[in-house]
């Protein structure tokens, strides 16, 4: 008799993401991050537990409504959005990226600095 059982949850997690609303949310997040849907789905399935996946859509909605008010750099990067609302990046990594980007905005144009910061976030997400 088995005493410890861990089942492969990937198929079930994928089933959660196939629901209409979840699919829309995943596509929106992928567009925001600038990566492909399939890669983001892979990351989500690997990192998040099933309850967080179910709640993805409403968290994304609340993130857009409440996250990062005021600071333009944080808003461009999605500082709170990707650490607290949708925890794809851990806080320390995000803090480093944020301070790097803030430093960069002094030297190069704002949009370019944000684009570079986003590149770093993508790397952190995929790592």
């Amino acid at each position: 008799m088995k005493y410890l059982y861990e089942k492969d949850l990937r198929q079930m997690k994928y089933n959660i993401l196939t629901s209409t609303k979840h699919d829309e949310a995943v596509r929106a997040i992928a567009e925001r991050l600038g990566m492909s849907d399939a890669k983001l789905r892979m990351v989500l399935i690997r990192r998040f537990d099933m309850s967080l996946l179910e709640n993805l859509e409403s968290r994304w909605q609340m993130g857009q409504r409440h996250a990062d008010d005021g600071d333009p750099v944080a808003k461009g990067l999605g500082y709170e959005l990707f650490t607290r609302f949708i925890p794809l990046v851990d806080t320390e990594t995000m803090q480093t990226i944020y301070s790097d980007t803030t430093a960069m905005t002094q030297e190069i144009p704002f949009d370019e600095a944000i684009a570079r910061g986003k590149e770093q976030i993508r790397e952190a997400v995929l790592s």
Binding site: M1, K2, Y5, K7, Q11, M12
Partner: peptide
């Protein structure tokens, strides 16, 4: 799907 293998385990216990 989660119960397909576990239901039998419970029955055996």
């Amino acid at each position: 799907p989660q119960w397909v293998d576990k239901l039998r385990d419970i029955w055996d216990k």
